[in-house]
Write a protein that binds this DNA or RNA. Structure first.
Lengths: 145, 145
DNA sequence: CGGGAGTTGACAACGGTTCTCAACTTTCGT
DNA sequence: ACGAAAGTTGAGAACCGTTGTCAACTCCCG
């Protein structure tokens, strides 16, 4: 039962995901650095725009390819919004979940060994292996009451 | 820590989701019945084909509309596959989660008071209220090993 | 039976994502 | 260092699941 601080516009920098294996081209580095500049989930298109607004020109297709590669390599988390859009985020090394405010989007990272154990146990119980899970908690934050 | 049986090609019939509120047209009934004929998750297009192969002609748009309506009404569960496609399945009324096979889609409904309590506690701890959550477990089922 | 609200379906439009392919980089072998 | 092979890029087209459009049709109620 732990947590970090809420992550509204938080813009503190961080270490970009490694390009493990891939050729370190200007474009790939740019995407990796962009990922380091935010902590919440962003869509490929948003990341593409972000790069554009910084003067880094990187083709949209390249952004998609790079994100996909990073996701495959486990360097970033990828998940789907309700409407099917893929969103990405560099993953902190620790596995965790999000408590998200429905109205303002304020996010708290939470983690709990209990859930991790539980999902593992459930999967085991049914013979499923190679298990992963997604869990998001939604609510209204104190500021929006 | 509970569960129901795995839900492979199991084809035993069941009660179709209710059309609560909506006009009981031939098409809506057909979709509801189709949903009753399987227990795993299917895409809108698969359901559309299923209907076609049964001689029930229902427009694709209507299938989408009906599924959406049922999902909004909580009559069916909707979730997204890894590649963003929406898949549907009639659901039991009790709140529960899914253990889904990544490769064949076999689904087990699971429930666990522990998680429910945990999410509530976490939310409380941060002052969030009006809480809900989503949780899906993915893995490879024994049959697909 | 009549009329308005609700529903349908063919088809177009949309939007996110992937594909294509020629031009360009990077990396190696020598 | 040089050149060739392999990998990467970007613009645009193609894809495909999904949603919108709108005239024709159904259902329900009086």
């Amino acid at each position: 039962m732990t947590s970090t601080e809420p992550t509204q516009p938080s813009t503190q920098p961080s270490t970009p995901p490694s390009l493990s294996g891939a050729r370190p081209t200007r474009q790939r580095r740019a995407v990796a650095e962009a990922l380091a500049s935010f902590t919440d989930f962003r869509s490929a298109q948003e990341i593409h725009e972000l790069l554009g607004s910084r003067g880094e020109t990187v083709g949209l297709a390249t952004v998609y390819r790079t994100l996909q590669r990073l996701a495959d390599a486990g360097e970033v988390d990828m998940l789907r919004t309700e409407d099917g859009e893929a969103i990405y985020r560099r993953c902190s090394d620790a596995h965790h979940h999000h408590l998200v405010c429905r109205s303002c989007g304020a996010t708290v990272e939470v983690e709990g060994p209990a859930v991790e154990r539980w999902t593992g146990a459930i999967a085991d119980e049914h013979g499923y292996f190679d298990v992963s899970h997604t869990l998001e908690i939604f609510g209204t934050c104190p500021a929006c009451r």
